[in-house]
Amino acid sequence: DLSALRVEEVQNVINAMQKILECPICLELIKEPVSTKCDHIFCKFCMLKLLNQKKGPSQCPLCKNDITKRSLQESTRFSQLVEELLKIICAFQLDTGLEYANSYNFAKKENNSPEHLKDEVSIIQSMGYRNRAKRLLQSEPENPSLQETSLSVQLSNLGTVRTLRTKQRIQPQRTSVYIELGSDSSEDTVNKATYCSVGDQELLQITPQGTRDEISLDSAKKAACEFSETDVTNTEHHQPSNNDLNTTEKRAAERHPEKYQGSSVSNLHVEPCGTNTHASSLQHENSSLLLTKDRMNVEKAEF
């Protein structure tokens, strides 16, 4: 173990290094160091905050020279020094078990990766560091076993998940096959086929009936047209017969005018059967003409 005197000496050296690497504005270890034209180094955030307070150039807090945003430059070497100082402080805390008085939040800088452990060898070769390295080497064999167990647990979990997924996939297939086998029997399929065939026959029977009705309507229309044509021909046949009657009536009127007047009046009210309204109107006109002729003949006879 380190003596108290040596611990104090190391602590004083760390404090001196820390004062050199402090920012003059925030009085902390410089984060993202930036250098000016006057070779003074500050935190990048502190300098941008200072420049944004005034429009135009501002003055350096140490030498009062003008500073602009374009004049600022990043210093990589200074950032490396800060990183190495942080590593020294971490090693000091691990070796002594004491917390550094002016320690900052170094938890963000710590890294437990194997590459980081290899890099620590180049920091300080001390008894405390050696003991700590031995402890780490002793704890390393235990870690692979834990990793193997965790991997086995994960693989077993994956296997159970896969088996569950396969079961879920197989179950719908089985149910679907069961439904297909038990849903419709052979008799049901035959009945469905016969039902479809009967429906098709009914459709075939319905369509000819409609065509037959249309044919019957067409035949009825044709018969009505033929009947009207026969009526017209009958009226045409009746007209010459009426003319013959008129000639006979004229002759009778010349011989017996008194008797014919009474008979002509009675004939006005008689309509021949089986004739249309057109034929009756023609008869009325003929009878009126005959009456006028008879009157003329009677007057001539009187004179």
Rank of each mutant, 00 (worst) to 15 (best):
I67L: 05
S75V: 15
R169W: 07
L86H: 06
S280C: 10
P33I: 09
E229K: 09
S75L: 15
Q73I: 14
R255L: 10
E84Y: 01
L27P: 01
E32L: 02
K54N: 06
R130P: 15
D244L: 15
C38E: 01
I30C: 14
L151T: 13
C90F: 13
N191F: 02
I215V: 10
P24S: 01
N234A: 13
K167F: 05
M47V: 05
K44S: 05
I14V: 03
K49P: 01
E142N: 09
S150Q: 11
R255Q: 08
K19M: 01
N191S: 03
Q205F: 13
A193H: 12
S197D: 09
R6E: 07
P114R: 11
V10I: 07
L136F: 12
K37F: 08
D1P: 06
F78T: 15
N143G: 10
L2Q: 10
Q125Y: 07
I89K: 06
N52A: 10
A301V: 14
T163W: 04
C43M: 00
K293Y: 01
H284M: 14
M296L: 11
N65A: 11
G159W: 02
N131P: 09
S71R: 01
C90A: 13
N131V: 10
N131D: 13
Q80D: 08
L136Y: 11
Q147E: 14
S228P: 11
C90Y: 14
L136R: 11
L86M: 09
R174Y: 08
L27S: 02
S126L: 11
S35T: 11
F42R: 01
I25Q: 00
N12D: 07
E271L: 05
R132Y: 07
L136P: 12
V82G: 10
Y260Q: 07
E120P: 11
L48P: 03
I25C: 00
V7P: 00
R165K: 06
L204A: 13
I124N: 10
R212S: 14
K250R: 09
P141Q: 14
S35I: 15
A220D: 11
S263A: 07
A253V: 14
G262T: 08
Q125G: 07
M17F: 02
T149I: 04
E254T: 08
Q147P: 14
R295K: 15
S186R: 08
R135C: 08
T96L: 01
T275R: 12
A16Y: 00
C43W: 00
L290Q: 15
L81Y: 07
T248S: 14
Y100N: 10
